[in-house]
Amino acid sequence: MGGHFGSDEHTASPVVGRALRLGIGGPVGSGKTALTAALCRSLRDELDLAVVTNDIYTTEDADFLRREAVLADDRITAVRTGACPHTAIRDDISANLDAVEELEARHPGLDLVIVESGGDNLTALFSRGLADRQIFVLDVAGGDDVPRKGGLGVAAADLLVINKTDLAEFVGSDLALMESDAARVRDGRPVILNSLRTDPAATGIAAWVRSVVPVAAP
């Protein structure tokens, strides 16, 4: 069994000797699973990685990742959250920790474990006991006033992704406004505009992930 989780592991330089744990949160439908799939495709050749999904009702997200064949089956684990997706990433992270530890035990030398949340509201935040770094994903169709309203996820995530930018013109969202509002509530932390339609590799986000994963000596 793994180590102790009583201490705060959300330190400036993530824990050495185990995989970086990256949380991906955001509202239902904002594109978390598609982004997870894109990151897996972009990073799997250079990083040893695995995914934990927190499906709200089914194993659909895990099944999607398997169907898309972004990773081998035994690198994807689905966790059930008892109808409380926030609880599973924040208040009681036990099931997610178990899933992460099992993946680490099955694949020694993992660089990165992505924990995708089950779909949250704007107040959701990953516990520091679970995620070393976290990405919050919004989409333009959710309304361009969301960044201004803020919320814990929008304000405090290590990276904010404003997703599906290709849809902005169709839903009447002002991308520049979203970006500037986000910058204001985020106190300088990074924001990336993303469209998997025009950039299936999620180039900017993948680069950010590379920058936070400690590089092991070859």
């Binding site: 966790v79 059930r80 959250t81 008892g82 409380c84 609880t87 599973a88 208040d91 009681d92 992270i93 036990s94 099931a95 178990d98």
Partner: peptide, 11 residues
Amino acid sequence: SRLPAGGHAHS
């Protein structure tokens, strides 16, 4: 019930 020991996901 808030004990962080995974009980919330079992019925």
